[in-house]
Design a protein around this nucleic acid. Structure first.
Length: 274
DNA sequence: TTCCAGGTGCATA
DNA sequence: TATGCACATGGA
């Protein structure tokens, strides 16, 4: 990936970087769009993305953080070419989401985000997550940081309900307490199978949410989150099957280490075009 | 009014 | 181990 780091920005070529594809493909919820530009929030950091000729400029006080966040050192052209060669039927999905990059997000924020995502729609997930930031996060000047685990330990089930979390409120309250006793960074040393076992112990985390956490928060490509949209894709293009455990197993056997990438292209094109 | 949304936890057999 | 149901909320 061609990019240049400057003092207050990262300049990146638009040929494999598109903010709409990256932010609206369902992997992150804390972003806003004003006119044509996107603003994205991660932990206590913020970046604005503006188009400048053939490039995008990621305007931020934390250029190095966002180089890693946007996974700019990975060659997505190569990944897409490999997927297309092995699985020609992905052509439309790959073209549609050509500017997607899998974000490297903070594990804690990812866990909280995807607990809220279960049986929920993206607009409402965004609303709840911004409300958590604005009510319990540190004010940064123009925006609010995502609260730390210590800050979130003070939030009660009733508080989450007041923010619109619904029945997930008790999951959140319990999960934060569990997470406060864990060193999440040490989970980076686990195998994907081991990590999966640990994540499933967290209240509100089932297989689908665990897969999203592993893909977006722990950079694991060998998982395939199966939700209502992927189930539709599978029934349309593979076979009529509604057992998500079987669907997941079959898709991981098919796409192996590239499962996470294939999933994201398929999810995005299915959700946007139906 | 009913259905659906990036599903999970729990009781039951 | 497998199945079925309850669970909040808001938009279509």
């Amino acid at each position: 990936m061609k990019y240049q780091i400057q003092k207050d920005r990262v300049v990146v070529s638009s040929d494999e970087f598109n903010p709409k594809d990256i932010l609206e493909c369902g992997q992150i919820f804390c972003y806003k769009k004003d006119d044509k530009d996107y603003v994205v929030y991660s932990q206590d950091k913020m970046a604005k993305i503006v188009k400048n000729g053939k490039n995008y400029e990621i305007l931020t006080k934390n250029p190095e953080y966002f180089v890693n966040f946007f996974d700019l050192d990975t060659n997505y052209t190569q990944i897409k070419e490999q997927l297309l060669k092995e699985y020609p039927y992905l052509k439309n999905a790959l073209n549609y989401g050509a500017g997607i990059r899998i974000l490297k997000q903070d594990p804690f924020e990812t866990i909280i985000s995807f607990i809220i995502s279960s049986n929920n729609n993206i607009k409402r997930i965004q609303k709840i997550l911004f409300a958590i930031r604005e009510n319990y996060g540190t004010k940064m000047g123009g925006y609010f940081a995502f609260p730390t685990i210590q800050q979130m330990l003070k939030i009660t089930e009733q508080d989450y309900k007041n923010l619109g979390a619904g029945y997930r409120a008790k999951y959140l309250e319990c999960a934060v307490r569990q997470l406060s006793k864990i060193d999440l960074m040490s989970y980076n040393n686990l195998s994907t199978a081991e990590l999966n076992v640990e994540l499933l112990k967290i209240m509100g985390v089932g297989q689908k949410v665990a897969d999203c956490i592993m893909l977006f928060g722990f950079n694991r490509g060998d998982v395939f989150p199966v939700d209502t949209w992927i189930e539709k894709v599978y029934c349309t293009y593979f076979e009529d099957e509604h057992d998500r455990v079987k669907i997941r197993k079959n898709l991981i056997n098919t796409f192996k280490q590239n499962s996470g990438y294939a999933q994201q292209y398929l999810f995005y094109s299915q959700r946007e075009n139906s």
